[in-house]
Design a protein around this nucleic acid. Structure first.
Length: 549
RNA sequence: GCGCCCGUAGCUCAGUUGGAUAGAGCGCCGGACUACGAAUCCGUAGGUCAGAGGUUCGAAUCCUCUCGGGCGCGCCA
């Protein structure tokens, strides 16, 4: 909606500039169209006069008249234009405009808000938790953000692949197997202390118990052999649990990428060879180093230890090398905030691989703290214990959890209130938004005869109706903006506002007015549009939009 | 010590590609169902945008410094 206005204003600006022999150039992109605070003064405003003033070195107020004179209004879409404030022009849009906007929305239907294909391939890699333990709430937040971002990007017109990187190689896997082995020995009566650096969670003991029950004589076989088997057993069991948790959370990955496969397929060596050819590799102290300082990192990084073992970082470089080889124009990684120190070296690596550093975007997700009725919930009662994602899902459900995780910017720590997430009141934004859908469905069920008409949308003259249409028609812009900024959380704010506008409208006006079928018909069309956008919006968040609650 | 994130109403937070008088919800108080779902709505009150400088026509937004909170700084993964 703003685009059309912008185009018209840019024409007027260009005209004014041309008569002065000026090229506005980039200045043309400076002006913004926005919503005035006070709706009485118009529906949209622009600072076009300010832009002109800057270009011409004149006072904004003197130029507002000039712009107004150059705007053509032959189609009658503007009801009123007036100068306001320091160089602003307010536009009040007429009924024709709103009726057409709403009509277009209803015509588009399920395709409303779908962006033109951009011809760009984007990978979103998220969760990627080590298969050494169950997912916890922090992973849940990353999962919700990554999944919603992927949905938004897809809707905005990007080609999206969602991927999970399984860290199934190296020391931690051996530690996992050893942890289970040690617990099995304890269960069999051994008394030596459990090593500090091993995984201590209850799930390790459960795994040990299960392994012993399957094969009581397990510990009589050679240790190496048993640890290796237990590693595999634990890994598969835990990974299966992670997949089950994500499925319950309605989070899906098209690709599960194994770190081990990088070694098996020789990708680590390939990537290192490539970097060596570009001069970013050297040897020192018996180790192989990446000259990361040449590309902005604070220190050089080891790729192959003096023991001959490759580092996690080396594998990660190979993984990203592989991502780009698969043709992705942009790779978005979603990490926990405690990994922020890893960004400079990863960006450096991307450059060393011959890509621009902006071809990798990293979204850091800050911590989640759980509270219940405002009181903190202990996250680590004992070493190795934490609140798992599954526990949260079992208590509050996937809808509430997803929505709550997406109410805040990833940049800020999130306080997740379990009681609030379960509350069936206005306090809980999930129910508040879902209730809109249920209420409208109820109205539609009660008035099937009027719902199918082709109504005269110009009958929607109430300010509450205009406000709703305005908000509804901003949906496509919101999707584009959320996709470009990689910030899906704006959807929750948008939907909450939409819900507030609807509930307010509902309190002020009867939709199915008894004595005016034409008006009732128009209003039913409006609430159908609201229903549609609520469903589309919640779908982008991965949240259900039930017809009754 | 160095780096990243955060600091906005009593509480939880929107708002950062610089734009008009900084917005919601909760909480407090008072109202509204013999009309479409009261899981809702309506009405008041609440602010030196942590602080101080700077950039400019204009700053919550950009820059510098200070204070406070969180998280990092391995030949770990």
């Amino acid at each position: 909606m703003k685009k059309m206005l912008e185009a018209k204003i840019k024409r007027a600006l260009t005209l004014a500039a041309a008569e002065r022999g000026l090229d506005l150039g980039p200045a043309l992109d400076r002006f913004v169209v926005e919503e005035p605070r006070d709706p009485d003064h118009g529906h949209l405003a622009t600072n076009a006069a300010l832009v002109l003033a800057k270009a011409f070195g004149q006072k904004p107020t003197e130029l507002a008249d000039e712009i107004l004179a150059r705007l053509d209004n032959r189609e009658g879409w503007i009801e009123k234009m007036e100068k306001a404030g320091p160089g602003f022009i307010n536009f009040t849009l007429g009924l024709d405009w709103w009726a057409k906007a709403l009509g277009d929305l209803l015509t588009a239907g399920d395709d409303f808000g779908r962006g033109e294909p951009k011809g760009l391939k984007v990978m979103v890699e998220y969760v990627s938790a080590n298969p050494t333990g169950p997912l916890h709430v922090g992973h849940g937040r990353g999962a919700a953000i990554g999944d919603a971002l992927a949905r938004v990007l897809d809707r905005a017109g990007y080609e999206v692949v969602r991927e999970y990187y399984i860290n199934d190689a190296g020391r931690q896997m051996r530690l996992l197997g050893n942890s289970v082995y040690q617990r099995a020995r304890e269960l069999a009566g051994a008394t030596e202390p459990f090593p500090d650096d091993h995984y201590r969670g209850q799930y390790i003991i459960d795994l040990a118990r299960e392994a012993l029950s399957r094969e009581p004589g397990l510990l009589s076989r050679p240790e190496d052999e048993v640890v290796s088997e237990l590693t595999d057993f634990a890994h598969q069991d835990i990974l299966g649990g992670i997949k089950a948790d994500l499925a319950a959370f309605r989070v899906g990955h098209e690709v599960w990428f194994s770190e081990t496969s990088l070694y098996r397929d020789g990708l680590v060596d390939q990537a290192l060879t490539f970097m060596r050819a570009r001069g970013y590799i050297y040897e020192q102290d018996g180790a192989l180093w990446f000259r990361a300082t040449a590309l902005g990192d604070e220190k050089d990084r080891v790729l192959i230890k003096s023991t001959g073992e490759k580092t996690y970082f080396a594998a990660d470089i190979a993984y990203h090398w592989n991502k780009y080889q698969r043709g992705f124009d942009l790779v978005i990684d979603i990490w926990g905030a405690d990994h922020h120190g890893y960004i400079p070296r990863m960006k450096a690596a991307v450059e060393a691989l011959g890509r621009r550093r902006d071809d990798l975007a990293v979204i850091l997700v800050q911590m989640v703290s759980l509270v219940r009725d405002g009181q903190p919930v202990s996250m680590s009662t004992r070493a190795g214990e934490f609140v798992t994602l599954k526990e949260v899902l079992d208590e509050v459900g996937a809808d509430a959890a997803r929505f709550m995780f997406l109410t805040r910017s990833p940049d800020t720590t999130l306080e997740f209130d379990l009681e609030l997430a379960k509350a069936k009141t206005r306090d809980n934004p999930v129910y508040y938004v879902q209730y809109v859908g249920a209420r409208i469905e109820s109205i539609l069920r009660g008035n099937p005869a009027l719902a199918g008409d082709r109504p005269d949308l110009r009958r929607l003259v109430q300010p509450e109706e205009t406000a709703l249409i305005k908000h509804l028609t901003a949906f496509p812009e919101l999707i584009q903006s959320a996709a470009q900024r990689w910030e899906p959380h704006h959807l929750t704010a948008y939907l909450t506002t939409l819900a507030r506008l609807f509930h307010h409208y509902y309190g002020q006006h009867r939709v199915a007015v008894d004595d005016d079928p034409a008006l009732a018909s128009a209003r039913l069309a409006l609430v159908r549009a609201i229903r549609l956008v609520v469903r589309l919006g919640l779908d982008l968040l991965g949240v259900d939009s039930p017809n009754s609650m």
